[in-house]
Design a protein around this nucleic acid. Structure first.
Lengths: 239, 239
DNA sequence: CGCCGTCTTGAAAGTAGTCAATATATGTGG
DNA sequence: CCACATATATTGACTACTTTCAAGACGGCG
């Protein structure tokens, strides 16, 4: 593993408090591997044999039933996924595929569970990260149950604008059909939602969205602290 | 605290592995209190000062934005709620109110966090319970994003029939408007969903639902293992 | 009994999904 | 560099699903 990658991972909240030897044990059994775009890393109902860390790239978490399919999360560096399944030695509830060429660290599940036993700091960090991921999912559920598609989009735009530095515009980093799925709607419906937001000063040019009248958009979106405020810890996704 | 209540709590997966003295410390600072029906125990955006254990009764977890409101979970004995908020010392994302007269154990949040530090078995149990709760919420999110209202109801009926002993019928233990909210629909829509399920052998008489043709209902519901299978550990809810 | 809240049913409107056609990108090979 | 093939994005028409509003039915309780 290259040392900058190692440093990245070491600094993850999840691993930062670990003893050096426990961390070394974890990393020794692991693989850092490069995957091209569009590779399925995990399939739902697979046993969780590895904990995955997105070191570089972008990974989509998704799930389906027969015909329908939905995107549950998009994991950016440095993020973790299928932590919950690993900890409880259960099958995965979500599939994962790369949206870009990605560097992925794969840590054997058994080593993670072992580190939980042997390293108290790791156990505590895991609790904190797990709780944060859990709270993010509850927020997603509230977003889904309490808002219309256009409202979800409007609030996503406001959150993402802040996250991207508050420049009054948002760059969509994934295909719009994936954003649509993440927001719980069809691509057609996302297009229409963007059209509807024109009235509140939202202008679309390809993947670049301009927010010309933030006050107006906020008035429509009615953002809610208990849905739209990011959790303190951000470097984790799991299932 | 009465000794049967104490035993109940002691046997919760969350506390079962703890050392006796750590458990005693936890319980000593706690209150076991009886609340009438309809009492709000926690309001969303409150700081999480206590971990709550439902010893007897029934508690609704709900949340809202301005006008709209939705039920996120219904916690039965012996279940825990707002664990995630307690662990991360964050504000609650959900409100809680009693649906029945209930016995509730309130454990000061500081003691829980302290027990996390001092008792490794408790830390591990917390991870397992938290992961299970997290996975349940992901299942809820999938249920919500991938299914129509009638499908959610059909699958809920099949799951609940099994849970209640497989007698070919289901007893709804809460008001239908609360079930409707839990399933992500209006009361009117729940009524219509029940009507739609008549065609698959579902008969409604008050709160008693008969499943006359399980095969037919299953055919409509298309249950999915990755949504409808209960997590191994069940004695926990948190936020 | 009679009041009150819940539950059900109906009609209308709003919201979202499907299907089809067109437009816009993206990428490939000539 | 262009033409083409392919995939994504948008738009329109239609259908399906869901909510809202309103009225009536049912049921529990003083």
């Amino acid at each position: 593993m290259r040392s900058d990658s190692a440093a990245k991972i070491r600094n993850l909240d999840l691993f930062a408090g670990m003893h050096d030897d426990a961390f070394d044990t974890l990393v020794h059994g692991s693989f850092l591997q490069r995957f091209p775009q569009g590779v399925t890393l995990v399939r739902e109902s697979d046993p969780a044999d590895f904990l995955y860390v997105v070191v570089d790239g972008l990974v989509e978490m998704y799930a389906g039933t027969g015909a329908r399919e939905t995107t549950l999360d998009i994991v950016a560096p440095v993020g973790v996924f299928i932590l919950a399944a690993v900890l409880n030695d259960e099958i995965c509830l979500q599939s994962a595929r790369t949206l870009e060429p990605s560097n992925i660290l794969m840590i054997p599940a058994a080593r993670i569970r072992q580190a939980m036993q042997s390293d108290a700091a790791f156990a505590r960090a895991t609790v904190i990260e797990l709780a944060a991921s859990y709270r993010r999912t509850i927020k997603d559920l509230k977003d889904q149950k309490l808002r219309t598609g256009a409202e979800r989009l409007a609030n996503w735009l406001l959150r993402t604008e802040t996250e991207q530095g508050g420049q009054g515009s948002v760059e969509i980093r994934v295909e719009k059909r994936i954003l649509a799925s993440r927001l719980g709607m069809t691509p057609e419906n996302l297009s229409r939602a963007f059209s509807a937001l024109k009235a509140y000063g939202v202008k679309v040019r390809g993947s670049r969205i301009s927010i010309l009248d933030p006050a107006s958009l906020t008035g429509f979106a009615k953002p809610n602290t208990l849905i739209d405020t990011p959790e303190k810890k951000t470097a984790l996704r799991s299932n």
